[in-house]
Amino acid sequence: MQNSHSGVNQLGGVFVNGRPLPDSTRQKIVELAHSGARPCDISRILQVSNGCVSKILGRYYETGSIRPRAIGGSKPRVATPEVVSKIAQYKRECPSIFAWEIRDRLLSEGVCTNDNIPSVSSINRVLRNLASEKQQMGADGMYDKLRMLNGQTGSWGTRPGWYPGTSVPGQPTQDGCQQQEGGGENTNSISSNGEDSDEAQMRLQLKRKLQRNRTSFTQEQIEALEKEFERTHYPDVFARERLAAKIDLPEARIQVWFSNRRAKWRREEKLRNQRRQASNTPSHIPISSSFSTSVYQPIPQPTTPVSSFTSGSMLGRTDTALTNTYSALPPMPSFTMANNLPMQPPVPSQTSSYSCMLPTSPSVNGRSYDTYTPPHMQTHMNSQPMGTSGTTSTGLISPGVSVPVQVPGSEPDMSQYWPRLQ
């Protein structure tokens, strides 16, 4: 039975679970980093996980050691009161100082060594604690504590007292930064006198190289990059290397530039699409467009005044059976039934097929058609009795279509119309 579990990581490298990497692998990681390889490249070359490479390099940059820390136990506290007071002093002298600059000053002034120097995250935590204590304490208590930490007896009751030896409130920041720059020169002199001055200088240079600022491109470089971006948004590694040799930039910087440029292009394309949609959409909808001609068919113009009344309900007709019959029939052209047409008796099958359309009241044959006459024609229609054979009435077949029909004066039988409509 094995005491430890061995495995293979996602890159194909072998590791022992819970145990640190061998010293030979750690040394190779540092050597590759000094030669300029990126952590992701080191991870692929040595088949070590990216997190492990970053952790080893980060500890090497901070402490200069590649040895693993002790497994188990607690780390001794490195942010001692003396170190905290120095950090507060540096922050007062130059409020814009960075944590890694404070760390360098602690090393250069001999406050800490490589073994007990606090990390950048520890210094940031100390600065946050100082800021929170400043908010919790009152103004007087804060000034007393700062005077105690600074070891001075001057008056701290006013704002300019934060910067000793100065009279203009805006000047101390520059003086403090100048003092810090002077301390940086002392850093070089002190570290050069040490035993491991060369190694420390190499480590600091490598650290500065990794902690780079934003790349500033010249106009020629920007023009070359934009020209390549117009050709393709995704250049391959050969195109990037050719462009890197042409404009004297690292291939990694060119790759990052193209990634950022593609993101910018997507944002601009989104804005262009929004403007295009806004320009195509009308600002207001016309009133006429809300009524579609496919839904509402136009009603033909009436030929006679009587045809303006298109349904039985508008003429005072309360018989719903006839109203439904007229509205359900398709529109037909106007025609006239003459008196000489043969009077065919209704076929029983045809009569039964339209039995649902006729009223059940037996008085329908005896009703006159003056009910369908509009009010303004009552006088004219009353002067001509319906009993004469020459009287013409208008029957409504569908809305908007008038059918003048000659009705025999002897017997106005409704059943004569249905064979004609089939």
Rank of each mutant, 00 (worst) to 15 (best):
L127P: 02
M148N: 15
I102M: 08
E31L: 10
V111Q: 14
G72M: 00
C112W: 06
R147V: 09
R77C: 04
L32H: 09
R147Q: 14
K145H: 06
D115A: 07
A33P: 00
V78C: 05
R44K: 12
S54R: 15
Q136F: 08
M137E: 15
Y143A: 11
G138T: 08
G36M: 04
V120R: 01
D115N: 08
L21D: 02
Q135K: 10
Y90V: 08
R147A: 13
V83G: 03
G64E: 04
V126L: 15
G58L: 15
S85H: 13
Y61S: 15
T113I: 09
D41N: 13
G51C: 04
W100C: 07
S96V: 15
A37Q: 10
R26L: 02
Q10P: 02
K145T: 10
V84E: 04
C112N: 07
I56W: 15
V53M: 02
I123F: 01
S4G: 11
I123N: 02
G64L: 06
K55M: 02
G12V: 03
K86Y: 14
R59S: 06
I71Y: 06
Y143I: 11
R103S: 11
C94M: 12
A79E: 01
A70C: 11
I102D: 01
G73L: 01
C40N: 13
P76S: 06
N3R: 08
V84M: 07
D41T: 14
S24Q: 10
Y90A: 15
P22A: 06
S54E: 00
V53F: 01
A79R: 07
H5K: 07
V14G: 07
C94Q: 14
V16M: 06
E101W: 07
S85I: 14
R67K: 05
T63C: 10
S24P: 15
N3D: 14
I71Q: 06
A99V: 03
E62H: 14
R92S: 12
R44I: 06
S108W: 08
S132P: 12
V84T: 12
N150V: 05
A33S: 14
K28I: 08
S43R: 03
A131E: 15
R19T: 06
G64I: 02
P20K: 02
R103I: 15
R19G: 01
G110S: 14
G18H: 00
C112E: 06
L146Y: 07
Q135C: 14
S85G: 14
F98R: 11
E93N: 10
N3L: 11
I87W: 00
H34N: 11
E82V: 07
F98G: 03
S43K: 02
K75S: 07
R105G: 14
A37E: 07
L130C: 15
E133Y: 13
K75H: 07
V14M: 09
D140C: 10
S65L: 12
R77M: 04
S54M: 04
K91P: 03
A99M: 05
I102A: 01
K134G: 09
S54Q: 07
S43P: 01
I42S: 01
D41C: 06
L106H: 00
G36R: 15
A99T: 06
L32C: 10
G51T: 06
N150P: 13
L11G: 02
